[in-house]
């Protein structure tokens, strides 16, 4: 292996519109960080160091969504200078919470929030990285799971497929030996339509799943919504549970639009 790869692969970490939480997940790999630094050359990671190694890069991790014209141009450069590009987190894979603007008038938001809205130059939508450039792998989550991130990096270093499954949260919840919070307690839960990866964190603490990892590979959101309503959830809340960190993920976006919001209209 060492004879084939004389140098360590270079790793770059890029930020677009995001809260930095997913990059922090990498920094939070305290026990593994030294080992990681021994396996890859951390070439560009402004959140961690000002030292910059010139590209191109073997692996780019991209956090955040595209919300400005500048970022739409910048992601093209990132792609061009990356051998492999992996998006991390709900912003990069689905547009993030900021994609709520996709369902509203961004000019109105801007006018309400900023004293001088004309200073803010932004796009009308927040879009995932995959809407702009080809992506080699999407790692879900808000935030991403630490162990899954290390697995993706290890898989890249070892040139194999990442062991990240697209099954429902229910599968990992049952593997964990949890009692179903919906069936046994009547607690609304998005687990049946949500992508695994968190280890069924919330149901393990008797909370329903919030859908942080976005839609699973196969979803039937309509059937689940019917169940949520049966459990007593008002229509406007069904609308809202699908309008969180993965609001613009197609399966969740379509389901939220089927239920009227508090304002009255479907949007």
């Amino acid at each position: 292996m060492t004879t084939v790869e004389a140098r360590r692969p270079t790793l770059a970490v890029w930020k677009f519109a995001s809260c930095d939480g997913c990059q922090l997940t990498l920094l939070n790999c305290e026990d593994e960080l030294l080992e990681l630094a021994g396996r890859v050359d951390i070439a560009y990671f402004p959140e961690a160091t000002r030292a910059v190694v010139e590209g191109p890069y073997d692996l780019s991790l991209v956090e955040g969504s595209v919300t400005t014209a500048g970022d739409a141009a910048r992601i093209q450069q990132v792609r061009a200078s990356s051998r492999r590009l992996v998006t991390i987190g709900a912003c990069a894979t689905a547009g993030g919470i900021q994609a709520l603007r996709n369902f509203a008038d961004v000019a109105e938001f801007r006018a309400v929030v900023y004293a001088r809205p004309e200073y803010v130059d932004t796009l009308a939508t927040s879009t995932p990285i995959s809407a702009h450039v080809p992506v080699d792998f999407e790692l879900r989550g808000c935030p991403i799971d630490r162990a899954q991130l290390l697995e993706v990096i290890a898989a890249f270093v070892q040139r194999r497929r990442p062991r990240v499954t697209a099954e429902s949260v229910c599968v990992e919840c049952k593997r964990r030996g949890n009692v179903c919070v919906t069936v046994a307690h009547g607690t609304p839960c998005l687990g049946p339509v949500t992508h695994a990866g968190c280890g069924a964190l919330c149901p393990s603490y008797d909370r329903g799943c919030y859908g942080c990892f976005g839609p699973a590979d196969t979803t039937n959101t309509g059937s689940l919504s019917g169940r949520l309503v049966e459990l007593g959830m008002p229509e406007r809340d069904v609308h809202r549970v699908f309008r969180t960190f993965n609001a613009a993920a197609p399966a969740f976006a379509a389901e939220s639009e089927r239920h009227p919001s508090a304002a009255g209209g479907a949007r």
């Binding site: 021994g38 099954e167 429902s168 339509v193 699973a216 039937n220």
Partner: peptide
């Protein structure tokens, strides 16, 4: 829902998959 709960709770369903874990090094 295609969520898989029925197969997880079924006392006879025996399907498994294999996961290979490797250290970074």
């Amino acid at each position: 829902l295609s969520c898989g709960n029925c197969t997880m709770v079924c006392p006879t369903c025996f399907c498994t998959s294999a996961e290979d874990h490797t250290s970074l090094a």
